[in-house]
């Protein structure tokens, strides 16, 4: 009896070891490019072809603002991402509620269309939009890129927020109106607060999708300013310099820190509630 037990345990422990090892290797592979990015931001070489020793001069160069085209690209990307986030989140909130609550003839069709940008390869939609815009003489630039970004951000926002709207929302809205709140008051005081976590993740998702987008940004830019990812794609041919790595390293550090702060605030709020 004793022996059977230990044999079974031993088998489990071995399986556990291999499972953990596997997971560890997988995460290592996911993080490897990030580590390489950070390491090469400290590479003392004119171009990142090989390791030439440690330096912080790329960070110094970055903050001397001598490489204006890099900063221009970043600012352009940020402007587009912020605008795309705001537009997509607003349309996404309204759309998710509207598509959940109302019945109308084209609803099935619109629901289908929402999944198109999510599933169809981005290049197809980018090219289709490009042909349409060029044919109808629409000026390429910030506006066209923004439209392109919103076209794939809105569906993600709608789907994310829709998942947050439960059957309870209808009766919560009824309860609010029953207590004397009109439709607008009900929307701002009940509907929006109850789906707020969904709205936040929709906004976050829209921002990350927009700031990292290459395909739409590239196809719909015309001759205008490039976004940061497009610039990196084109610089790649001639070799990237360390300041690009320095910039993207700083960006990921900011993202992770703001995410940690956000979740710390949420956890603290949850704890406060539990105490009350």
């Amino acid at each position: 009896m004793e022996q059977v037990k230990t044999k079974r345990q031993g088998k489990h422990r071995l399986g556990h070891f291999f499972a953990t090892l596997y997971i560890f290797i997988m995460y290592a592979v996911f993080y490897l490019p990030v580590v390489v990015m950070v390491v090469y931001s400290f590479n003392d070489a004119r171009k990142n072809y090989s390791w030439m020793g440690f330096t912080t001069r790329w960070y110094a160069k970055l903050f001397s603002f001598s490489n204006t085209s890099l900063w221009d690209a970043l600012i352009y990307s940020l402007i587009i991402a912020v605008l795309a986030t705001v537009i997509s989140t607003v349309i996404g909130v309204l759309g998710a509620i509207g598509l959940k609550k109302f019945e109308f003839k084209a609803k099935k069709f619109i629901n289908m269309m929402i999944y198109v940008p999510i599933i169809v390869p981005e290049i197809v939609l980018a090219v289709a939009t490009l042909i349409l815009f060029v044919t109808f003489g629409i000026q390429m630039g910030l506006g066209s890129i923004l439209i392109g970004h919103c076209t794939f951000c809105i569906p993600y926002a709608v789907v994310t927020i829709k998942g947050r709207i439960s059957g309870d929302n209808d009766t919560l809205e009824e309860a609010s109106m029953d207590l004397g709140a009109n439709r607008l008051q009900t929307f701002t005081k009940v509907t929006i607060p109850t789906i707020m976590p969904g709205v936040m993740s929709a906004a976050f998702l829209s921002f990350t999708l927009s700031i990292d987008d290459v395909v739409m940004s590239n196809m719909l830019a015309g001759g205008s300013q490039s976004t940061l990812p497009v610039m990196i794609l084109s610089l790649n041919r001639t070799g990237l310099t360390g300041d690009v790595n320095a910039l993207t390293t700083i960006m990921i550090v900011i993202m992770v820190i703001s995410m940690l702060i956000y979740s710390a605030i949420r956890r603290r709020m949850a704890r406060k509630e539990a105490q009350a």
């Binding site: 990030v34 990015m37 090469y40 990292d212 990196i232 690009v244 790595n245 990921i252 993202m255």
Partner: peptide, 13 residues
């Protein structure tokens, strides 16, 4: 988290 880094930079890495 790794996917919040710029995808072009990840490919470059």
């Amino acid at each position: 988290i790794p996917f919040w880094t710029n995808s072009m930079i990840r490919l470059n890495s």
